[in-house]
């Protein structure tokens, strides 16, 4: 080894000696950073945990358990639980009432989506000027009020309104020289009566959502369209509606989910605790109602769980389809 190499090695080992404390310091700093990071996370999860616990206990665990029992024969009070595989689903699909309920839910949803969306949009357009005026808050509250009243209470009032003998609905029809209807007593009009109640109850929420959407349409765009010589209808079609499409999409999704899950108003209006809900002759038996009746009236929880799972898959599929359509028609700024 030459003297030169020896010197170089000596210098190298001296450098290493000098650098070691530096590396140790940086490792310490890294460790301290990791601990700080961990502490931050612990605090964050600690603060989140009450809400998370509620979610897990009342949502995720029951949902997971629902999937589990749909493959078993399971009773609330029975101790024997046996695995039955897809038997619950086979029985379900073989049951005509299930298909009837599915069709009723589909019909209810198909009517409710356009009805709520169009009506809410129309009302919000009419109210747009009113709510931006000085006492706009009063209008907003008035519109939103039905939505915050309990469904069961208002549905009982609607039962009275639809009473064939002395209800307000037939009184109005009579005044308009139209024939009186049997409403909740007839298979033909029971579901439309429920729809009217649902519409009245849910509209306020959708109107408020549309009003928020309309407030986000820049005023200049409407003004420039006016200067461009566009008529009101053209401004609405070509400027406001496209810019409102994310809101409309949100309302459609919400209306779809709420319609498929509609239960309280149907249960209250068509039978309530006295039994017979979903009548007359199953004309108002929707999927959600059938799930409830199968579980709590017929005491067949695993079949109800299978039904709920099918309902979940249907809503999920519908949402995916709507999302796919929305990518083509919804414009996000």
């Amino acid at each position: 080894m030459s003297l030169l190499q020896e010197r170089a090695e000596l210098a190298g080992s001296a450098r290493q000696r000098r650098e070691r404390p530096t590396m140790t310091r940086s490792a310490q700093a890294r460790r301290a950073r990791r601990i700080r990071h961990l502490k931050d996370h612990l605090v964050a999860y600690g603060l989140l945990s009450p809400a998370l616990a509620v979610f897990v206990v009342f949502f995720y665990v029951p949902a997971a358990y629902l999937v589990y029992i749909s493959f078993f024969h399971w009773g609330v009070l029975s101790s024997s639980t046996s695995f039955v595989g897809l038997e619950n689903f086979r029985r379900l699909f073989a049951q005509p009432l299930f298909w009837h309920a599915l069709a009723t839910s589909g019909y209810y949803t198909l009517v409710m989506i356009p009805a709520t969306t169009l009506l809410a949009l129309g009302i919000s357009l009419v109210l747009k000027e009113a709510v931006t005026a000085r006492r706009g808050g009063v209008w907003r509250a008035a519109v939103f009020l039905p939505h915050v009243t309990p469904v069961v209470a208002t549905s009982i009032i609607w039962v009275w309104i639809f009473n064939p003998q002395f209800g307000l609905a037939n009184f109005v029809l009579e005044k308009l020289h139209l024939p009186a209807l049997g409403w909740l007593d007839t298979t033909q009009w029971a579901l439309p009566a429920v729809m009217i109640d649902s519409l009245w109850h849910s509209l306020g929420l959708y109107v408020i959502i549309f009003l928020a959407g309309l407030a986000n349409v820049p005023r200049e765009l409407v003004e420039v369209a006016r200067l461009d010589g566009a008529r009101r209808s053209r401004i609405f079609r070509r400027v406001i509606l496209p810019l409102l499409s994310p809101t409309t999409f949100f309302v459609v999704i919400l209306a779809t989910v709420n319609s498929w899950q509609a239960f309280s108003q149907i249960y209250t209006m068509t039978g309530g605790p006295h039994g017979g809900a979903g009548g007359p002759a199953f004309s108002t038996t929707t999927d959600a109602l059938l799930v409830y009746q199968t579980a709590f009236s017929f005491d067949h929880f695993s079949l109800a769980a299978a039904m709920a799972l099918v309902l979940f898959v249907i809503i999920l599929l519908l949402t995916v389809i709507q999302k796919w359509i929305s990518n083509k028609v919804v414009f996000y700024r």
């Binding site: 820049p218 200049e220 765009l221 003004e223 420039v224 369209a225 200067l227 461009d228 010589g229 566009a230 008529r231 053209r234 070509r238 400027v239 496209p242 810019l243 414009f331 700024r333």
Partner: peptide, 26 residues
């Protein structure tokens, strides 16, 4: 014809559609 401070272009239309909107409206 007016030009706004923030341009007020129709964000969902192409440039060509923006330019022809007024012509088509009339």
């Amino acid at each position: 014809g007016m030009v706004f401070q923030n341009y007020a272009l129709y964000p969902h239309m192409t440039v060509a559609a923006n330019l022809s909107f007024g012509l088509a409206s009339r």
